[in-house]
Amino acid sequence: MSKLNRRDFVKALAAVGVVATLGKISGKSVKDVTSEVSRKSAKGLYPSAEHGARYAMMIDSGACIGCRTCLHACKLENNVPDEPSNMEWIDLFEMENTRPVSEVHGMPPADSSVDYTESPREGHWYLSFNCFHCENPPCTKVCPTGATYQDDDGLILVNYDLCIGCRYCMAACPYNARQFNWWDPVYQPSRVSPIDGEIVPLNPKVPLRTRGVVEKCTFCVHRIRDGNPVPRCVEVCPVNARHFGDLNDPESEVSRLLETVRTHRIKEELNTKPMLYYFTRGVKWKDDGEKI
């Protein structure tokens, strides 16, 4: 190959590269291309998203009695492994009454208790966390494979088949909402078939995870996209502290709540625009069942 030829060849190669890249992303933001690829590859894992919905959850932190019903219902609903036992999609923290939410800096709050044995307790309130499904998620941006992505209805999901377990998304999440499968998931004997040792998924609609991938709250994507109006945690809450709905639907419960109560979100300064709102109706829970 003469010198000139070689140079031409390199030039042609560069041109092909540029054209291919431009053709791929022209007219679309990088984010769109990314989510398109991810959504396509996650097909079959979740029901497809309804266009135009914007799901949000609102937690009445004044009403919550810290009973952990949501936490356990969630574990069953979503086939969350029983071992390791701290694998939970919802975290509940017992806070001193004098601690405002806005003072929470570390996540989870440093002087709170996760392993309280009695609730509700005088002088305390309960802060619950699950994935915030941010409108501007920092976690999906950093993923090197597109395993975690934002869907059309705003849900942040993980495609467990694409995740390489680098845990970069966990580093990027300001809310510690993500859990990693450090071990093979272990289920209690009652959830394992005595005949062939296969795991009997309590919920066949939710895919099982393997060791080495990241998982987290999905807002019960298999329910809300399949005719069931609310996630399991919202359904089971005995004091109705959790509310869920579509913010784009003015008639939904969350839309109406947003108009009537004062709300706030956590770490707004990070511009993540979380879809989990907290509110109280202005009173704190008291031991005699009355409100102060």
Partner: peptide, 17 residues
């Protein structure tokens, strides 16, 4: 990596990521 067997996915999805 939690799943080193899938490291190649970074190459497969390179263009979009």
């Amino acid at each position: 990596l939690g799943r080193p067997d899938r490291a190649y996915l970074m190459v497969v999805n390179f263009a979009s990521r």
